[in-house]
Every structure is written in structure tokens, then in C-alpha cells.
Write a protein that binds this DNA or RNA. Structure first.
Lengths: 197, 197
DNA sequence: GGAGTAAAGTGACCGTGGTCAAGTTTAAAT
DNA sequence: ATTTAAACTTGACCACGGTCACTTTACTCC
């Protein structure tokens, strides 16, 4: 039987997350160093690894929280009226992930949407994404904007695949001009959701 | 002006690749250690990094070669007659990548198909994939097996996205039962290529 | 209170990828 | 044959993530 964690432990965990968040705001995700986090939090290195499986585990919590916040914003938006609207709604999420390769890597690693450990924030965020996308797709199907020969859940899964695809491409090319990841997404989504003539 | 590489250098490079290949055959990609490679090749550690940008660079060469071999086999096959055939043809490639997370990670990192440095084997292999897929798609379009409202190249790009998607899922779940990555691919491909009624 | 026990935290230590100033080999120039 | 500069290689060194036997703290029961 496992007991409830002590107050001290909760405080330590909070300190680790708080300081990590601060360092990320200063230098970005890629530059985060475990040594820096524990130094600022005033704990030993080993402590961090008793709270999180590894550095990626810590990052996953922080990234999961950010994605959840983005999902809140998404859900507050009105339902898209066409595929371009849909693309625009996805743009903030895409831009967040596109900011740093580490974010993309972590999310991809945990993207087994319907995986076992549900209590992980990241996994929850994927469920929300699928649900949200499915809901929007349902509406678009009912208004005849998009194809109706596939289940909303399948179409939502496909959109996730395309999101990851454009992000993977994003990290392989230079970006002098002001292009965004979502501009590459639109043609794929239009073809995937192709409204029948 | 850069001179042609000396004979000694070519031999060193060949030795590094040969020994790395051997170690991978013994222990798999994930277990490869730089120290082991240089020891077997009889060179110093620094030498490896003068031949390859980093460990991933070495792996990319070896993985690229394997993918090229798989592409040779693919191109030797007759053109698929329907989407299920297509799925079967992709299965060997999928199984190769599914064998080890490292393989997937490396390929994903270099999957910016039409990227700058063309002389990289991995990049070349992506071009071949796109070309091969496009060719197959053209045939299927002409026989009326699949949709004709999108360019073969776009449909091929989408297939790549789905390949990566099912692989990402593959690494997120356990596999007791004898399922393969390509079984998850089929429904996505059928919907993506959906023959109009 | 004090003894006993489980939780929490510690930091020296390790493995591994990657660097770089210095040394060695090669081959072109004379 | 000698010189010379570039190509090539070396290995001590560093950075960073992660481990684990041990110490300290907090809770429980008498």
C-alpha cells in the first residue's frame, strides 16, 4: 500500500517544476540542464530523478501543461466553418511545437494517444485533441463541408498524422521567409477531408 | 579548395562503417557505442567524429544504406493492383523501421525529403520513396482504383505521414499479440486514397 | 518523550557522446 | 632528396544525464 506523499515532497516537486519553467522561459526548452534546475530549486540531483523518471519526464509534465492551456483556448473558440478555419484553429498549437525540436520529440514519444498510463498530462492532452478534432469534424460533416464516408475519429487521427508530418518537415528546412508550419498543412487537410463534389 | 581524400582516410572510414555494421548485427542499433566502434576499428575516438558529424550521422549512413536496399527490393516488385497490395509492399520497410526506436528517430530527423544536402544517402532514399510511391499511385489512378482529384506527389507525401504515424503509435504500445505496424496502416490508406463511389 | 520505521533527500560516482590543441603522415613543390 | 603545408589522427579532457548506498527527516505507536 502506498501512502499519501508528505507536504515536503509536494513542495520539492513544485519547486523543481517552478524553477524548470523559469529556466525554460529564459533560455528555451533545448537549453534546459538538470544541474541548473536542482541548483535553483536548492535540492540534490538525485531528488529530481526520484520525482521524474528522467529529464524527458520533467519536460513532459511542463509541455503537457502548456498543451493543455492551448487546448483550453481551442475549446473556447467557435467551431470552424470550413477547412481553412480548422487550419487556423490548429495554428497556435503548431507554432508552440514548432518553436523547439525538443517539444516535438517529447510529444511524438508520448503520442500513443490511447496508451496505458492515462494520468500523464501529455496523454490526457492527446485525448482532448482527438475529442476536439472529432467534434469539429462532426459539425463540418453535418454542414456538408467535408467528406462523410469516414468516422470523425479516423479523420481526427489522420489530422494528427499530418500535424506531425508538417512539423517533421519544419525542422528539416531553414526558415528565412515568414512561412508558418500551418501553411504546409492546409493542402494536406483539404485533400484528406475533401468535400465530395 | 578541397583536395580529394587520401587513401588512408577512405580505409579508415570503411573500417568504421564495417565495424559499426558488425556491432549492430550483434546487438542492434540502440546498443551501439562509439567507444566500441573505434576500438574495433583500431582508431581514436576523435577520428570517428572527423568522419561523421556525430553518432547519429554514422547511424544515418548505415540506416540509409539499409533503406536503399529495401527500396531496391520494392522497385523489383510488380506495381500494386489495389490499396491492400500497396500496404503489403510497404510492410518490409515498416518492419525494418519498427525494429528499433533509434532507426525511427534517425529517419524522422532526416525526413525533410526535398532538403538541401542531396548527397546524404538517407535523403536520397526519401526521394526514391516519394518517386516510387508516386509511380504506383499513378498506375492506381489510371486503373480507377483510387481517387484522381489529387496529384500523385501529394498523395505520396500523405502516405509518408501515415507511415510515420503508425510507427509512432507502434513505439507507444506493447506488442504481445502478433500484430504488425502495417495492419494499422491499411484503414488510413484506404480512407486517404478512397476510390470515389 | 523515545524507539522504530518508512519516506525523502543527498552527492560522489559512472557511462557515454563529443571537443580540440597537439602530434603524425602524406604528397605536392622545389 | 628536402622542404613544407595540408590532411589526417590522437587521446586527454569536458559536459551532461542518470544511479545508488547512505544520511536525514517525519510519522507512528507504545
Amino acid at each position: 500500500m502506498t501512502r499519501a506523499p508528505q507536504k515536503r515532497r509536494l513542495e520539492t516537486r513544485a519547486a523543481l517544476l517552478r524553477e524548470a519553467e523559469g529556466l525554460i522561459l529564459e533560455n528555451g526548452f533545448s537549453a534546459l540542464r538538470v544541474e541548473d534546475v536542482v541548483e535553483r530549486a536548492g535540492v540534490a540531483k538525485g531528488t529530481l530523478f526520484s520525482h521524474f523518471k528522467d529529464k524527458d519526464g520533467l519536460l513532459a509534465v511542463l509541455i503537457g501543461a502548456r498543451v493543455m492551456a492551448l487546448m483550453d483556448e481551442m475549446e473556447a473558440q467557435p467551431s470552424p466553418e470550413d477547412v481553412e478555419d480548422l487550419c487556423d484553429l490548429l495554428s497556435p498549437l503548431l507554432c508552440f511545437i514548432a518553436q523547439d525540436r525538443v517539444v516535438f520529440d517529447i510529444l511524438l514519444r508520448y503520442s500513443g494517444s490511447t496508451s496505458a498510463v492515462i494520468d500523464e498530462t501529455v496523454t490526457q492532452s492527446f485525448h482532448r485533441q482527438i475529442n476536439q478534432l472529432s467534434a469539429w469534424i462532426s459539425v463540418l460533416q453535418n454542414t456538408g463541408q467535408i467528406r462523410q464516408d469516414a468516422a470523425p475519429e479516423l479523420l481526427a487521427e489522420g489530422i494528427q498524422a499530418f500535424l506531425n508530418h508538417v512539423l517533421a518537415l519544419w525542422f528539416c528546412v531553414d526558415h528565412e521567409n515568414g512561412e508558418t508550419p500551418s501553411s504546409a498543412l492546409l493542402p494536406l487537410l483539404q485533400t484528406w477531408l475533401a468535400a465530395p463534389a
